[in-house]
Amino acid sequence: MTRRGGADPQAFIRAETRALPVPLAPEITLHLAVESVPIWQRTEEELGEMGLPPPFWAFAWAGGQALARHVLDHPEIVRGRRVLDFAAGSGLVAIAAWIAGAAVVEAADIDPFAQAAITLNASLNGIEGLHVVTDDIVGTDAGWDVVLAGDIAYERDTATRVFAWLESLGARGAQVWIGDPGRSYLPRERLQWIAEYGVPVTRELEDSEIKRTAIWRPRDTGN
């Protein structure tokens, strides 16, 4: 397992989280932080460096919860297909795709702690064979049939780069599904609204206890 600052990511995750059901997808259990602020502080202290990526892997974010629920309720989206969970974080959406019957599931995240969390969470749900992708894959095309992306519109430049890539995958023939609770840089004018969910979240992370979260698809891809 990749190490950063001498820390063992899997040991850190086990020590700092609890195995809890996902509020909107309780059939899935994840290693989750009980409180948000302490784990942010603990991450900095444990690794001995500042400015680390926030531990997004420690939370079931609204976009991922809605997307996981949608996939579980509509398994035909992924059944028998090669699926990518992009910016997977905890691996929630990848696990949902696996449960829904995907033939191959790849969970991509460049954070070594997210990679460790995905592996631990897959094991926690009795899943073997889920592939963790560690490279920055934006701009690549490995022939995925379905690409799932939850909560990816936080930062302007990243969102611009990622959505252009997702649109190119859709134009090639992949089905692209996006879960988003109204983040600032979601290009709504280029997307088609599919469904909406009320997602239980915490006020430590969001501005309400129920976050209205939509499922979107790129427009004009023919898929």
Rank of each mutant, 00 (worst) to 15 (best):
A66W: 06
P53I: 14
G48R: 05
D135T: 12
D109N: 11
D8A: 09
E16L: 00
G143L: 12
D109H: 07
L120T: 02
W57V: 04
A7S: 12
L47D: 03
I28E: 07
P23E: 13
A88W: 02
T17E: 02
E35T: 03
A7D: 04
A97K: 03
P23G: 14
L20W: 01
T119A: 15
D141R: 06
T17Y: 01
I13Y: 02
A25N: 01
G139W: 09
E128Q: 12
H74W: 05
V133N: 06
P21L: 15
D111A: 09
G80C: 08
G126F: 13
Q41F: 03
V71Q: 09
H70C: 07
T17L: 02
G51H: 05
G91T: 07
A19Y: 00
W40Q: 13
D109K: 06
L72M: 13
D85G: 04
A122D: 04
A33E: 07
G129R: 10
V138L: 10
A58L: 05
G89Q: 09
P112S: 08
I39K: 02
P9F: 13
D135I: 02
A66G: 10
V37F: 01
G139Q: 10
L124G: 07
P38K: 08
T43K: 00
R69L: 06
L47N: 04
R18P: 01
L24Y: 14
G51L: 07
L124P: 04
A19L: 02
V83F: 11
A62W: 04
A96V: 06
E46M: 10
A97T: 02
L84K: 10
W61V: 04
A142V: 01
H74N: 15
A11Q: 12
D111H: 11
E49F: 13
R79C: 00
G91K: 05
E35F: 01
L24W: 09
I137E: 10
F86Q: 11
T2I: 11
E35D: 15
M50E: 15
T43G: 00
A87N: 08
Q10H: 09
G48D: 08
G48F: 08
E106W: 05
G89M: 10
I95S: 00
P55E: 12
A100R: 07
S90P: 03
G64T: 11
A15F: 01
P53Q: 13
A88C: 08
R14P: 00
I28A: 09
R18I: 01
H74Q: 15
I110H: 05
T17P: 00
L24E: 03
V83G: 06
R3Y: 10
L124M: 11
V83I: 07
E76M: 01
P55W: 12
V132Y: 05
F56W: 15
A122H: 03
A62L: 01
L84A: 05
H74R: 15
T134M: 10
R4I: 15
V93R: 08
H74Y: 11
P26E: 12
L72A: 11
Q10M: 09
F86N: 03
R42W: 00
E46G: 03
P26V: 13
D135R: 12
E46N: 00
E49L: 14
V104E: 15
N125L: 08
S90Q: 07
G143V: 12
I13C: 04
L84T: 09
